[in-house]
Simulated assay, not measured.
Amino acid sequence: MTLTDNKPRLRWACRRGMLELDVLFLPFVNEAYDDLSAKDKATFERLLVCQDPELFAWFMGHEVCEDPELNAMVQLILQRVKV
């Protein structure tokens, strides 16, 4: 079973060691995740496997993710936060 198939496990995976990431991931899962395509859900799940310092650098704009799919997901999440 993947995280995509189990929303409570997905929410649990969104709880990170950094509050800055929690406030991005948890609202995204609650408000936007269900509207994603299957491919984007898989990309989001891949994003959750990344390490917190790496994620923090991407989301705070200190670094750019070299993986185009992950970078697109980071940008999508950031856009949702700005809305």
Results as ranks from 00 to 15, higher is better:
T2P: 13
D5T: 15
D5L: 09
D5Q: 15
N6S: 13
N6P: 05
P8C: 07
R9H: 14
R9M: 14
L10C: 04
R11S: 12
W12C: 11
W12M: 12
G17R: 04
G17V: 01
M18P: 02
M18H: 10
L19T: 06
L21A: 09
D22S: 12
D22C: 03
V23Y: 08
V23P: 03
V23M: 12
V23G: 03
L24W: 00
L24R: 01
F25Q: 01
F28R: 03
F28P: 00
V29K: 00
N30V: 01
N30T: 03
N30G: 04
Y33A: 09
Y33G: 09
Y33F: 05
D34V: 09
D34P: 00
D34W: 06
L36V: 02
S37W: 11
A38M: 09
A38C: 10
A38D: 14
A38L: 07
A38Y: 07
K39C: 09
D40L: 03
D40Q: 11
K41W: 03
K41G: 06
A42C: 12
T43M: 04
F44R: 12
E45P: 12
R46S: 11
R46A: 05
L47S: 03
L47W: 01
L47M: 05
L48K: 00
V49I: 08
V49E: 06
Q51P: 08
Q51W: 15
Q51F: 15
D52R: 02
D52C: 11
P53E: 12
E54N: 08
E54M: 14
F56L: 07
F56Q: 13
A57L: 04
A57M: 04
A57N: 07
W58P: 04
W58M: 02
W58Q: 02
M60S: 15
M60H: 13
G61W: 04
G61R: 05
H62T: 12
H62G: 14
E63M: 14
V64N: 08
V64K: 07
V64E: 10
E66K: 13
D67L: 08
P68E: 10
P68Y: 06
E69S: 14
E69R: 13
E69L: 15
N71H: 12
A72M: 09
A72T: 13
M73N: 06
V74S: 00
V74E: 05
V74P: 00
V74T: 08
Q75K: 10
Q75T: 12
L76Q: 09
L76E: 02
L78I: 03
L78E: 03
L78V: 08
Q79L: 10
R80H: 15
V81A: 10
K82R: 14
V83T: 11
V83G: 13
